[in-house]
Amino acid sequence: MFTDLNAHIVSSEPDSQGDFFLVTEACDSDGSFILHHFLTQYLKSSSKVVFLGLAQSFSHYNAVAQKLGVNLMAARTSGQLDFISGLQYSFPLMREEGSSVQSSSQDTILQDCIISKSLHPLYKQLQKYIGKETGTQTYDGTLLMIDDLSILHSLGVETSQIANFMQYCQQSGSIVSLLHCDGDEDEEMLSLSTQLQHACTCHLMIEGLPTGFSKDVHGQLTIRQKSSNVDNARPSKKMLQFKITDKNVSFFPAGTSSAVL
């Protein structure tokens, strides 16, 4: 959890139905550190987290979280964290048809999705975790975390299906989701990104520096927050630059890096 970042994100009104943080990264940048920020933040604030990891394995996330001072293993055994290994789901898709390896019914979820041209099976699977009885433990809300949505598209899911899926997910609580967006190469992906930007409550856009690589400034972050409240109807848009260090990320207004001043 990077306390610097929290200062820039206004927490939503308590009566709202949940936040939707959309993190987009351009081709020359990596936004996964924002995911780790939210993951550790929600775990620390005793929310239940359902994590659909399509990009990395659990041990990867665990190793990073450990550096940030959160033990994912312990959270998983206590039931606070549910990790769904999306890598396993995508594996049957890569296998050649008619191969002898038997896969369990769970692993074919994405295959079912592609055959039925709908992400309904995946949604049902997530619902099993989200609606699971938590026993005596009570949590403050549920967070669904997806890393990353663009992988579903790469695996052959249509963007309109991804938009549907996200709409349903929005109803089950807060969401943090990463989307990789490669410039103007893919029209469909751009359209999906715009649609999700309309739907989200907070959009965090990670880009590389337009002026090129720098040793002291690793990229820029644009935060756009929406409010349903009329009183602060003016859109809030903030541009920050950041530097990633071993265990922390420092954010500063553009042009005020300590290396410059």
Binding site: S118, H120, Y123, K124, Q127, N164, Q167, Y168, Q171
Partner: peptide, 11 residues
């Protein structure tokens, strides 16, 4: 908005 695709019908 709540159920445009009919996914929630069994719930």
């Amino acid at each position: 908005w709540t159920d445009p695709q009919g996914w929630n019908q069994d719930r």
